[in-house]
């Protein structure tokens, strides 16, 4: 690499660090800069961002498709609200993480057997199936049936506005911890093993990677983070019911992951913002077809993502080459 190349790399790295620092400062200062403005939506966006970070760990780096992450949110929220009155909110969210990790491990076991789109569909069906569960009459005494559960977490603030700011900081702190944690996890022995397992499971196994253990663990860890995010989000809202985290959330999380780059962690929070704000915009355009607008926009985005190199080539007038053996 040339001296200039190295220099450019260094500047880029520094630039990234600077940008990250700037965004962090802005995030912490946000409630002071824009007091009261959309703070609740920001808090929710960060919660969904945590879910997308969890999904990036599992799918972007681990190669396992999940269209079931709303189930972790839902499980996390119910566990948190059921336990919070007796053991306190913080402990309840921790237990929610553990419960979601167990569900994740279960799906991970399924993931050992089926891959790719099938796993995506299976997890989606799980999200569809579990979504109904809290309504079951047998569970209603615990889950509140179709009327749901309320819980008001004790915070050192009394006015609704001050509570909103507290929630924002709590969620921000947890998000930061989880994102940094995943960042280092990916650079650990486990992270290398996870990516090896995704790239080539047979080769990884021959190199000593226990791919089954690694894949199941990744699902459990990802589930735990999504469950924690669900527990937190429930606390923020103060109320949950069976349709607080519908299967559509799974879709939004997956799309949020795809469009912000499956292997870029900080961008996950952009994805979280998309989840909170885009449906509102789409709704403003046309209320009856808002999901169609969303789907159409997604297709357009995917088309650009896939064909950008070819389109650019055509614009610059050079021959476009097509691979002989496309795999679609």
């Amino acid at each position: 690499m040339s001296v200039f190349g190295r220099l450019a790399g260094l500047v880029a790295a520094r630039g990234n660090a600077l940008l990250t620092a700037a965004v962090l400062v802005a995030a912490v200062a946000y409630p002071f800069l824009f007091p009261g403005y959309a703070i609740n939506s920001m808090t929710m966006a960060i919660c969904y961002g945590i879910g997308i970070v969890a999904l990036k760990l599992l799918t972007g780096y681990g190669g396992q498709f999940s269209l079931g992450h709303s189930a972790f949110f839902a499980l996390g929220s119910y566990v948190a609200f059921i336990l919070a009155p007796t053991i306190g909110f913080a402990a309840a969210v921790a237990v929610a993480g553990i419960a979601a990790a167990l569900l994740g491990a279960l799906l991970g076991l399924a993931g050992l057997r089926i891959k790719g789109h099938y796993l995506g569909l299976l997890t989606f069906m799980v999200a569809l199936a579990l979504f109904q569960m809290p309504k079951a009459s047998a569970l209603a005494p615990i889950t509140g049936g179709s009327s749901g559960l309320f819980y008001r977490a004790p915070l050192p603030a009394t006015t609704p506005a001050a509570r909103d700011v507290w929630w924002y900081w709590i969620v921000l702190a947890v998000a930061l911890a989880i994102t940094v944690g995943v960042h280092f996890l990916l650079r650990s022995r486990f992270g290398r093993a996870l990516q090896a397992s995704r790239d080539n499971a047979l080769a990884a196994g021959a190199l000593g990677v226990d791919t089954a253990l690694v894949d199941v663990s990744a699902f459990a860890v990802s589930g735990a983070f999504a469950g924690i995010a669900g527990g937190l989000l429930a606390g923020v809202i103060g109320y949950i019911s069976y349709d607080s985290f519908p299967y559509t959330l799974s879709i939004l999380l997956f799309v949020g992951m795809t469009v912000t780059g499956a292997r870029s962690l900080p961008a996950a929070y952009l994805g979280g913002a998309l989840i909170v704000f885009v449906p509102t915009w789409a709704h403003d355009i046309t209320s009856r077809l808002s999901w169609a607008v969303y789907g159409g926009a997604l297709l357009a985005l995917l088309y650009i993502q896939v064909n950008a190199p070819r389109l650019l080539q055509r614009l610059t007038g050079r021959e476009a080459t097509r691979p002989v053996g496309d795999v679609s």
Binding site: T59, F65, L67, G116, H117, G120, I251, F254, V255, T258, V259, A262, Y294, G295, G296, L298, L299, L302, Y303, Q305, V306, N307, R310, P323, D326, V327, S328
Partner: peptide, 15 residues
């Protein structure tokens, strides 16, 4: 979208 990876194709079916 045939040039995209499995992730892209799955996202397309979601859309």
């Amino acid at each position: 979208l045939r040039g995209g990876n499995a992730l892209v194709q799955f996202a397309a079916m979601i859309a």
